[in-house]
Design a protein around this nucleic acid. Structure first.
Lengths: 203, 203
DNA sequence: CGAGTGATTGACTTAGATCAATGACCGTGG
DNA sequence: CCACGGTCATTGATCTAAGTCAATCACTCG
């Protein structure tokens, strides 16, 4: 569904853009930096991170190959989060000014951009909703149900389980335990790269 | 800052719009309904609600006088949440089609709309970040610091404390206790309509 | 072959959820 | 005008699930 999701960016923009190669952990911007543009992820994975008062790092957004990163920053002066490469990644940097100009000039482009932002908002709302589920088990199940691919049973694992724990707002230990328990009870099956829901074992 | 935030909607759109008066609890749309348009809140307060598997209601967005409600739905076919009036409210309903047409026709309007959506995204991210703070006390403090008005000390209370508890993802009991404790320790002062931070008593 | 990290499991603690009860404060209808 | 049902605010007692600390094993990367 979002495989080649950037086809809509006009060729003229792609030409002025700059490719960069990042190693895992490389920063792409810091909180407070002036916004220079937005980033397309060609391969790998970028994370948007904030730090709580207690120093805990929070992954706020994760963009994978074919997705944009930090779109919302287009309309800000400075970044409000840190951006880092979660793994070795190739990206393309689009300068801010030409993008904004293109959005003004091309209503189709603008509409698509708005539609993406709207989806982004809805996804964030969904995540927020998830967080209102207190039970680790139910939270995880809710996530798995929503994250299941077309067949409704397969959840491919991008990144590590630790990342998943962070996204769910759980400690990794609790996630491991809950997964182990669900597996023992037959609700899910696991491989290193995916989780499978076993139909008929919901709750 | 967001007092008269809807001035940017062109007069032509306002003319075709329909006013409605809502009593507390009145629904404005249900999950799965076809999207008919977006809503401006003239007075009162609208809530976007979802229901978790366990039947708990989650307030996902709250729009107050002068704000738009369910903008993100413009680009969807059906609503993904329930919309209800949190209190007696006056609203104006803008039909979907003319809004979309106006956004295509007017680059300024489109740009402003995109900027709003971007802010929306950032606000949601901030809320998500808040949820990663586990301690009720720190979560509350973080909220108060961010929600403080210009003077950096006053947090006006819209709605009930129960609503605030829901927004923070805490039970109301815990919120009451935490507020009581903070007050006892001198970190905050309270009136029925506002909370005041006492400088020099952070953390 | 270490150093670093992820995955996993055990033991223990605690903060927040839950259950429960009370008083204040509506608004409303008789 | 007042009694009554409803909700909010508040506080106490108790419980439990998630967090925390800790140890082990398997990998991978240089």
């Amino acid at each position: 569904m979002s495989r080649s999701s950037l086809d809509w960016l006009p060729q003229s923009l792609r030409e002025g853009a700059q490719p960069r190669t990042l190693a895992a952990g490389d920063p792409v911007f810091h909180t407070g930096d002036k916004v220079y543009g937005i980033i397309e992820v060609v391969s790998g994975r970028l994370h948007m991170v904030r730090h709580t008062i207690e120093g805990r790092a929070v992954v706020i957004q994760s963009s994978r190959a074919g997705e944009l990163f930090a779109e919302a920053a287009l309309f800000s002066d400075v970044y409000h989060c840190d951006g880092v490469a979660a793994e070795a990644s190739d990206v393309i940097v689009f300068d801010r000014v030409p993008i904004l100009a293109a959005l003004r000039a091309d209503p189709d482009l603008a509409e698509q951009f708005m539609a993406r932002q709207a989806r982004q908002v809805q996804r964030l709302r969904t995540r927020l909703e998830q967080r209102n589920i207190r039970s680790a088990r139910e939270r995880l199940m809710q996530y798995l149900l929503l994250a299941a691919e077309g067949d409704g049973r397969t959840i491919p694992l991008e990144g590590t389980l630790k990342d998943l724990a962070a996204e769910l707002g759980l400690t990794h230990e609790v996630l491991y335990r809950t997964l182990a328990q669900l597996e023992k009870e037959g609700g899910i099956k696991r491989t290193p790269t995916a989780i499978f829901l076993v139909p008929g074992n919901a709750v």
